[in-house]
């Protein structure tokens, strides 16, 4: 989708364009913000506020960068501002200090939900059927390697090898989506 079409549509306050951008980026902006503020409700409030002001200020605002980096940088600044005004747990403040002072590119590399889903799904399609089955059991149903081994009547080592093979392919295929995924580490 062409960026200029979206930004110019936004500047015209075109509701169809606004809805599209909202649906496209909402969940990933929320997930992205979770690395700064580990609270779902706060994060949703901030992202919704951000979209409301995006709409209100749209005609007087020109977006020079790509729409994506405009959105992610914008929400990041809002998260940082919010933290400054709140007593936030020490570990998060430390992290924010770190990212705010070092010009990081986390905003640049984040992906929308549908892009990530598409990337993962097409990756999984490339795995051999048995490998895919085991990999999905491991990642989606929360079974331990031992439990999968028992369920499928395989040795634990075979299960681990299959997961490892799946991971190798995923790592290669997902490479351009990878910078963002580090965030998930911070979510835990």
């Amino acid at each position: 989708m062409k960026d200029e079409l979206l930004t110019s549509g936004l500047a015209r306050r075109d509701k169809v364009v606004f809805d599209y951008i909202f649906n496209y980026y909402y969940s990933s902006l929320c997930a992205f913000s979770m690395q700064f503020l580990n609270d779902r409700n706060t994060v949703e409030d901030l992202v919704q506020d951000f979209f409301v002001s995006l709409w209100l200020e749209a005609p007087s605002h020109t977006i020079h960068s790509s729409l994506k980096s405009y959105l992610f940088t914008g929400i990041k600044n809002r998260c940082i501002d919010f933290c400054k005004h709140q007593k936030v747990e020490h570990k998060y403040r430390k992290y924010i200090f770190f990212t705010a002072t070092n010009e990081d590119d986390s905003a640049e590399h984040f992906v929308a939900e549908s892009e990530l889903r598409h990337a993962i799904e097409s990756c999984l399609e490339k795995l051999p059927p048995r490998c895919k089955e085991i990999f999905e059991m491991s990642r989606f149903s929360g079974l331990s390697n031992q439990e999968i081994a028992i369920k499928l009547g395989l040795s634990k080592r075979t299960v681990e090898l299959q997961i490892s093979n799946g991971l190798k392919i995923l790592r290669k295929e997902l490479i351009e989506y990878l910078p963002v995924c580090l965030v998930a580490l911070l979510l835990q």
Binding site: A119, L167, L170, L174, A184
Partner: peptide, 12 residues
């Protein structure tokens, strides 16, 4: 990161 990409999708 590859391992956690699915966690990230679930989070989204």
């Amino acid at each position: 990161k590859a391992w956690e990409s699915m966690t990230l999708l679930r989070e989204m």
